[in-house]
């Protein structure tokens, strides 16, 4: 069963400094590909910045967004992500509004889950061609696409 996450969170002040730090961190995400493959519940995940800071002369955004489609309950597998990418979560949260309060994530799992829920926006509408197929089922059918 697929689930959606639409996580949109304000970047902490000072926004420009934290925006730049986040942008750098997101460049390292390709290095985590094998971890996401191993956990095997995420269909798609995309990070992007929203809401340009109109007061700044530089290109600065004020919000970080993560949109993802994943299998299973969030709570069931979040611990596995934390085992593998606790440092990444901590590094990202340092630059997000209210994020300091849930660092380190592995010792604050409940608070972290509540934090994610707080900034998870409910979509107005969604379409999925195969809402009940899991990553594992798709990989089982198409092993060469891994």
């Amino acid at each position: 069963m697929q689930n959606l996450l639409n996580f949109i969170v304000p970047i902490a002040a000072p926004v420009e400094e934290n925006y730049k730090a986040l942008k750098e961190l997101l460049q390292t995400l390709d290095g985590h590909r094998e971890i996401f493959d191993e956990i095997g519940t995420v269909h798609f995940a995309r990070f992007l910045f929203l809401e340009k800071d109109t007061t700044s002369t530089n290109e600065v955004y004020t919000q970080l967004a993560l949109f993802t489609v994943y299998d299973g309950d969030f709570e069931t597998y979040i611990d596995d992500f934390v085992v593998k990418v606790n440092d990444l979560f901590n590094a990202l949260l340092k630059h997000l509004e209210g994020g300091e309060a849930v660092i380190p994530v592995n010792k604050n799992l409940t608070a972290f889950t509540e934090y994610v829920r707080k900034y998870d926006r409910k979509e107005e509408h969604s379409y999925r061609a195969y809402p009940n197929l899991t990553v594992q089922e798709i990989k089982a059918k198409f092993p060469t696409e891994n």
Partner: peptide, 29 residues
């Protein structure tokens, strides 16, 4: 992967799948 030798649904493979890359989540946790 398919369980030709040891069925994926067998008791010991379910209760300890041994390989995380073939299931949701991690085995080690």
């Amino acid at each position: 992967r398919k369980g030709v030798k040891c069925p994926v649904g067998s008791h010991i493979r379910r209760t300890n799948p041994r390989n995380s890359d073939q299931i949701q989540g991690l085995v080690e946790t």
